[in-house]
């Protein structure tokens, strides 16, 4: 109820005015949205690529954080970043239970991820990526990340 009310309000707003590099792909319902983001500056790791984000909203959004992951398809790879696993799961305190705040919204999450990519200089996956991707069956919201890197 609360979630659909707020999402219904922000949907037309989003279509009108989104920051550069962020586009709304699909928002048919109040459960799952797809967004595309691009890195706008000259960072060679991400230049010319577009990445697809999937938002899954729970009933209690925005009190509870949405589940945000990168998804892969033919045109959209998973960005290489020391905090993004190759199955698309993002390790970012903003998306975790503790780091989330109800004042965030789809747009602000996209902007945060954009800046997280822009400021990155390491062309690498997180340590232990392969093992994590192979063994992980949990949903992102149930994983307990340890946030240790304050540089991004």
């Amino acid at each position: 109820m609360f979630a659909s009310k707020r999402l219904g309000k922000s949907c037309p707003q989003l279509q009108d005015k989104l920051p550069p590099g962020i586009t709304l792909v699909k928002a048919d319902d109040f459960r799952e949205w797809l967004m595309d983001i691009q890195v706008m500056d000259e960072n060679p790791i991400y230049k010319g690529e577009t990445y697809r984000l999937k938002f899954i909203f729970s009933q209690s959004y925005p009190i509870e954080a949405p589940e945000v992951v990168f998804v892969r398809n033919d045109m959209r790879p998973i960005p290489i970043h020391p905090h993004i696993y190759s199955n698309g799961i993002i390790c970012l305190d903003l998306l975790d239970r503790q780091g989330w705040s109800p004042v965030h919204n789809v747009e602000s999450v996209c902007v945060s991820l954009q800046s997280m990519l822009t400021s990155n200089t390491k062309n690498e996956r997180p340590p232990g990526d392969e093992a994590f991707v192979r063994s992980n069956t949990q949903r992102p919201r149930d994983i307990n990340f340890v946030f240790h890197d304050n540089s991004v």
């Binding site: 609360f2 209690s60 009190i63 509870e64 239970r97 503790q98 705040s101 109800p102 004042v103």
Partner: peptide, 21 residues
Amino acid sequence: DCLEHAWRAQHDGRKTCPTCR
């Protein structure tokens, strides 16, 4: 009401400003 909603969901019982924490 919104503020009470947000605080009820905070797990550690600490109450922070949703904007500036």
